[in-house]
């Protein structure tokens, strides 16, 4: 947990650098008021300072604790990894199969292999819920969901 939290804070520090860099590229002043670069610089510096404060707090917090807790269990990481990979894959497949069919496939895979339901339950839940989503988004709200594009 300790290492992961620090990586997270360092990520925030990098983000603050990006915000400051963007601010520097833009004018800081304009006539009678501030320019578009003023606030990004101030906010970027603020994020950087608060990140340092968070790092210091994290050092003190973990000094007090005797043992460090695990960020994630092995089983949890596997489940989450599969979930994110299948979701990303389904979203990439959307270009070919359309959004709803990709989501049906995503739901079936997750319900079967992550949540460990039977094939019958997985297919039934995926199809029924996507029919409901189709009725809500495509028919009621008239959202033009991307279709099959072979």
């Amino acid at each position: 947990m300790k290492l992961m939290e620090r990586i997270f804070i360092i990520g925030m520090m990098i983000f603050s650098g990006l915000v400051i860099y963007e601010g520097i590229k833009l004018p800081i002043k304009s006539e009678y008021t501030i320019g578009p670069g003023f606030l990004p610089i101030v906010i970027g510096i603020g994020i950087f300072i608060s990140s340092i404060s968070c790092i210091v707090q994290s050092v003190y917090k973990y000094k007090k604790l005797d043992t460090d807790t695990k960020f994630i269990s092995k089983e949890g990481a596997t489940r989450l990894g599969i979930f994110i990979a299948v979701l990303t894959g389904a979203l990439l497949l959307n270009e070919i199969f359309g959004l709803l069919i990709s989501m049906v496939v995503f739901m079936i895979v997750i319900l079967r292999y992550v949540e460990k339901y039977s094939w019958f339950v997985s297919i039934r839940v995926a199809i029924i819920s996507n029919i409901i989503f189709y009725l809500i988004f495509e028919i009621w709200l008239r959202v033009p969901l991307p279709g099959i594009n072979l």
Binding site: M103, V125, A126, S129, L145
Partner: peptide, 14 residues
Amino acid sequence: QKYLSPIVTVLCIL
């Protein structure tokens, strides 16, 4: 609740 995670995910995506 049994099938919450994939249902909420698809709802969020759509």
